[in-house]
Amino acid sequence: MDFDAILIVAGSAVRLATPLLCACLAGLWSERSGIVDIGLEGKMLAAAFAGASAATATGSAMMGLGAGLGASLAMGLLHGYASIDRNGNQIVSGMAINMIAAGLTALVGAAWFGQGGRTPSLNGDARFSPLLFGLDGLTLVTILCAFFTWLFLYKSRFGLRLRAAGENPAALETAGVSVRRIRYAGVAMCGLLCGLGGTYLSVSQAAGFLPQMTAGKGFIALAALVFAKWKPIPALFTCLLFGALDAIAIRMQGISVPGIGAVPVQAIQALPYVMTVILLAGFVGRAIPPRASGIPYVKEN
């Protein structure tokens, strides 16, 4: 591979990593506050559809972004209502959001645009265009989000409280802070970040929405979150690594490696999942989730 090819793969790795990083940071905010979220996929899909639809209707990519953020935020708050106020099962709620988003986007898309669920092709101002090194504003914002997440989480009082809500909510409540409010803030941030990732998919990376276009990215992000041990800066690097794997898999299609032969693309695609299983099992290193995540917090009377 020559230098140009490396640059091309690197650029495509960053672009492929962007939606992963958004969803991974989203999961980080939610799970660090104590709410497990397997609905990242569904929220991104909803945002991708809302973003592309609004961009189509208004001709403005920024309006698309607003709609994407709004749709994903709404679904995040629904998950929050089920998990925080109703003490519902967070896995079940995340599952429900994935299903509702998968069905609703395809159904409404087909009814509105009559193109089998896709939105019309976006061009001109309706789509984000590259700003710097072939990367657009959304990618740059996403990378900044990783640093801001780190800053908030570890250098602010709010971040301390968020982490406490995920580790020991009873102690937080004893200190006079509402666990409910902190957790709602966590799921709201999760919604917004998924919205960013979803909008990126349909209004920047692709020129429009396709049914099921997230294609498991929400779950790779979940794997990345485990891999990064629920920490923001490792999340950035894990997502870049997973993005690079994806870029290499695309590049390697049909290419024979000397001494090994053709590497099956599927093996590279499965690698993030396999690595996560190994890490989660503690065979190499150990990934331990926030202690109180997944457990509804019931205030003592």
């Binding site: 089920a82 998990s83 109703r86 003490n87 519902g88 099962n89 967070q90 079940v92 709620s93 599952m95 429900a96 959001i97 994935n98 299903m99 509702i100 988003a101 998968a102 069905g103 609703l104 395809a106 159904l107 087909a110 009814a111 669920g117 049914p211």
Partner: peptide, 24 residues
Amino acid sequence: RITRDMIVVIQGLVVLFAGALEGM
């Protein structure tokens, strides 16, 4: 106009109401 995706929506709503919001 009512594509088969409607089934997935109903399925998701059943999971939401019979699962996550079960106590509502």
